[in-house]
């Protein structure tokens, strides 16, 4: 490993954007406030000055319009990176994403592809209430024709974008808003990473905690706490929600025989439900305890701090669910 560089999740994405703009003249960035304002989470700050208004484009407040424009540009040979402020607002562009971007390749018999990348912030925890806080990545993971990725580490924040741009089909990147300020070391030569596989972030033998995105740091913190109590939890980062890397999840649970799934989405019909189903389908006879889930409370995300905290998966909830999964009565 080369010497690490101190950086943040936000800076890692920005350098990925900068690299993409430098490497490929077909790449351009478009979205609300991405230019002069520097992006609502300051991810694109400085890019307008560096690359000019042709390649860093502010758009009107109309998600359907600029996502549609991105689809058209992609079909005509460009490599657009569209930013949607939060995934709540992506619903205004749902028709474009689902009925056009996801389907064009299939409906044209492969004559057209849509090499579009859409980045959006997801998740709660900043007291911005129900209009800005939901986790809808699990919804999008339902749709064939889309790839859904959820970078949770600096490496993935830095490396997933370029791989997504090279994909001939639309890729949605969900960036958890609480991760933007996360800091750490990143190798100076960090580059593209795959967007097809899950990864074991911590090895353990007693139970598998399967999670992704903004819940990964919580799961790792829970695993650390559990280790103090003698429970060796393995933490699996899904990384990509569609297509789901069933093999890695099943291999982990086949080893530990117990699973806890942590998902900031709502429990009903969530990606955590899908993971549970895969476990039952693929390694039923390996399960030594019921699968446990830690999900958000099934309410629109509350504004008040104590209520928002109570609604979201917290480290203590993960610890409790995991202890429950491994519990034995003497």
């Amino acid at each position: 490993m080369t010497t690490g560089v101190r950086t943040s999740y936000r800076e890692a994405i920005r350098s990925a954007l900068r690299e993409a703009l430098q490497r490929d003249p077909r790449v351009f960035v478009m979205g609300e406030d991405v230019g002069r304002y520097g992006g609502c989470y300051a991810v694109t700050k400085g890019l307008l000055e560096e690359f000019g208004p042709e390649r860093v484009r502010d758009t009107p407040l109309s998600e359907s319009t600029f996502v549609g424009a991105g689809i058209g540009a992609a079909m005509n040979g460009m490599r657009p990176i569209v930013e949607i402020m939060t995934c709540n607002f992506s619903l205004l562009a749902l028709d474009q994403i689902m009925n056009n971007a996801a389907t064009v390749s299939h409906m044209s018999g492969g004559q057209f592809s849509v090499p579009l990348v859409i980045r959006m912030a997801t998740g709660a925890g900043r007291q911005v209430a129900a209009q800005h806080s939901h986790s809808l990545e699990g919804w999008f993971a339902h749709v064939p024709g889309l790839k859904v990725v959820t970078p949770a580490t600096l490496e993935d924040a830095r490396g997933m974008l370029w791989t997504a741009l090279e994909d001939p089909n639309p890729v949605l990147i969900f960036e958890h808003a609480l991760l933007y300020n996360a800091e750490g070391e990143l190798p100076a030569d960090a580059g593209p990473v795959d967007i097809d596989t899950a990864r074991v972030r911590r090895e353990g033998r007693d139970v598998s905690i399967v999670t992704y995105g903004g819940s990964l740091p919580k799961a790792l913190a829970a695993a650390e706490e559990l280790a103090q109590a003698g429970v060796q939890a393995e933490v699996v980062d899904l990384r990509t929600l569609r297509p789901l890397d069933t093999g890695t999840i099943v291999a982990s649970v086949t080893k530990t025989h117990r699973a806890v799934i942590v998902d900031e989405g709502w429990r009903s019909g969530s990606i955590s439900a899908e993971v549970t189903a895969r476990l039952v389908e693929h390694c039923f006879y390996e399960l030594d305890a019921p699968v446990r889930r830690v999900c958000s409370a099934e309410v629109p995300t509350p504004y008040a701090k104590h209520m928002e905290d109570a609604a979201l998966p917290q480290v203590a909830d993960i610890v409790a669910a995991t202890q429950d999964a491994v519990s034995t009565v003497a």
């Binding site: 030594d288 305890a289 019921p290 429950d324 999964a325 519990s327 034995t328 009565v329």
Partner: peptide, 12 residues
Amino acid sequence: AGTGPGGAVTAA
């Protein structure tokens, strides 16, 4: 006699 969650019999 099960010692697992809810008194279930476990592999152990």
